[in-house]
Structure formats: C-alpha cells, structure tokens
C-alpha cells in the first residue's frame, strides 16, 4: 500500500515539477500565463515534441540517436534545394526529404543492428557525415524563396491553434498508439528490457532496431519540415544541437536510458517542461549562456534520478 503511494508520487513527480514551474514563472512574470504566450511555448516546443517520439522509441530499447539534429538540418537544406533550385512542387519536395530522413535513420539501424556498432558511435558518425553533406549541398549559405503556401505548416493557424502544435499533437497520438495499442509497442518494451530474452521469445530484435532508428529519422524529418516552414529559409546549421534538447525532453519525461521503461505521456510533460523553462528564462532575461547551464543541469538531474531509481530497484 505504502509502496503504491510512493510509486504514484514518483509517476506524477514530473507533472508536479511542471506545475511548480508554471506557478514560478506566473509569479515572476505577468506576461507568462497569457493565451498568446502559452501558444507561443507550444509552437516553440513543437519541433522537440515531434522529434521526441522517435527518440522515445530509441531510448526505450536502450539506444541513442545523436544524428537527429543533423537530420533536421539536412531535411531543411534538401527540401529547400528541391523546391528552389530544382523546381519541385511543395508536396513532392516534402515527401522526398522526409523519405531521405527515414533512410538516414535506416542507415543508423544498419550500423547498429547489422554491423553492431554501438549506437552512440554509429549515430555520432552519421551526424558528422550528414552535417558535412548539408554544407556541401547548401554551399554554406541559406536557401530561401519558397511557395508562400509552404508557410502554413510552420506558421499557420487553425482557429486559435498553431498548425505545428496540431502536428505535434498528432505525432504524440500516433506515438502513444504505437506504444500502447500495437504489437510493435510490446516488442519495443521487450527488447529494451532484455534483448536476449526478447529474441528467444520470437522477436526479431534486429528488425525492430531497423524499424526504430528509421522511425527516429522519420520524426526528425517531420520536425525538419516544420522548422523550414517556420523560418522560411534553410540554414546549414538549422538543427544544430537539437539532439541534446530532445534527449533531455525524453529522459526528463521518465524514459529510462537503460531501456524498457517509459511512456509518451511522460515525454509530453518533459517537452513542456523544457519549453516552459526556455520561454520563462527568456521572459526573465536570463542570458542564453546561463540557459545552457540550467538545461545541462536539468539533464544531469533527470538521468541521475533515473540511475538512482534503477540502482535501488536492483538492490
């Protein structure tokens, strides 16, 4: 009984933190709790949110994907290049570049699963490779001048709600469905819990890894499209450092870096915390360097919490 109470506190701890943050910033700055600002927060975090779905899957199987920032960048550059330089239609350009993002994810899957390179190294390597490729394609300068309709994805509104927020919400729903309602979700948890036992239960672990890294690439690709539409210009450094924020969101959301544990609902909270923290700090004029320090500390806190919990449950 007592254990149940402790567990439910642990489970809802993340929401408690979120609430405290909201209260803190509301008191600290009167502009914080306005409808406008809250939608702004949601719009700002939408790219984290979208990319976090794939990262959640990856971390669930005790993997890591450091390449998503680069994938976001190269999707920006390639999609823009296709539209501006090669005269592709909007839809075709988006499809091709998201497909490419998925393929880069599949390449990560190949390196991790078939070759057997540790995920941290494999995705670090692809990060570097495609970062270079993005520079080569763009020539190091921004590409812009898109069809005005393209703006809708990142800047449009449906009623009062920004379109990217809707996309993020749709992604969260899809992610939650995959994890809870499909057999893939069951497989992910099993592989993350114990790869060997999962294989011996009839799960083809190798294929699952391909799928997961491909999905990570796919969601990063979507995030890249949203970003391109929002900024209306492809920068060769567009997604720089995104993997850090996304990993922070996911781990903060209670997905265990040791694999096998985590929920989409927690990740939503994690994304919101990072969003509110960033937005709140901007409103309070905290310098961007100080922001970096605070975000780094948040990551240490989140991983440390997870590690200590895991240790206690083993002992």
């Amino acid at each position: 009984m007592k254990e149940n109470i402790i567990n439910s506190i642990k489970r809802s701890a993340i929401w408690l933190v979120l609430l405290l943050l909201v209260i803190f910033f509301t008191i600290a700055n009167h502009r914080f709790l306005s409808m406008n600002n809250l939608f702004l927060v949601a719009r700002q975090v939408s790219m984290y949110g979208i990319a976090s779905i794939g990262m959640t899957f990856v971390i669930l199987i005790a993997g890591i994907d450091l390449s998503i920032g680069t994938i976001i960048t190269i999707v920006n550059v390639v999609c823009a290049y296709l539209m501006v330089k090669l005269g592709f239609g909007m839809v075709e350009a988006v499809l091709v570049s998201v497909l490419m993002a998925t393929a880069i994810g599949a390449l990560n899957g190949f390196l991790v699963s078939t070759i057997g390179i540790p995920a941290i190294i494999a995705t670090f390597a692809t990060q570097t490779v495609f970062s270079g490729a993005a520079y080569l394609i763009s020539g190091g300068i921004p590409i812009f001048g898109f069809d005005p309709r393209f703006k809708v994805i990142g800047q449009g509104y449906l009623g009062p709600v920004p379109v990217p927020v809707l996309i993020m919400a749709a992604c969260f729903i899809v992610g939650a469905f995959i994890l809870n309602k499909t057999y893939f979700g069951r497989y992910f948890y099993a592989v993350g819990g114990n790869e060997e036992a999962a294989e011996l239960s009839g799960i083809r672990v190798g294929r699952i890894k391909y799928l997961i890294y491909s999905l990570s690439g796919f969601f990063a690709g979507l995030a890249g499209i949203v970003m391109l539409s929002r900024t209306n210009s492809a920068q060769p450094t567009a997604g720089l450092g995104y993997e850090f924020d996304v990993i922070t969101c996911v781990v903060l959301g209670g997905v265990s870096i040791m694999g096998g544990l985590g929920k989409i609902s927690g990740v939503i909270a994690g994304v919101l915390i990072i969003g509110i923290l960033t937005n709140g700090m901007v409103l309070l004029n905290v310098s961007s360097y100080t922001q970096m320090i605070i975000k780094g500390l948040v990551l240490i806190f989140a991983v440390g919490f997870d590690t200590i919990q895991k240790k206690n449950s083993v002992a």
Partner: peptide, 12 residues
C-alpha cells in the same frame, strides 16, 4: 537472463 522478460507484465 533468457527465459522471462522480467520487467514486462505476465500478460505481455
């Protein structure tokens, strides 16, 4: 190590 998925439910 190989038989049961310890962190997963009886049902799963």
């Amino acid at each position: 190590r190989h038989g049961a998925l310890l962190g997963v439910s009886v049902k799963n």
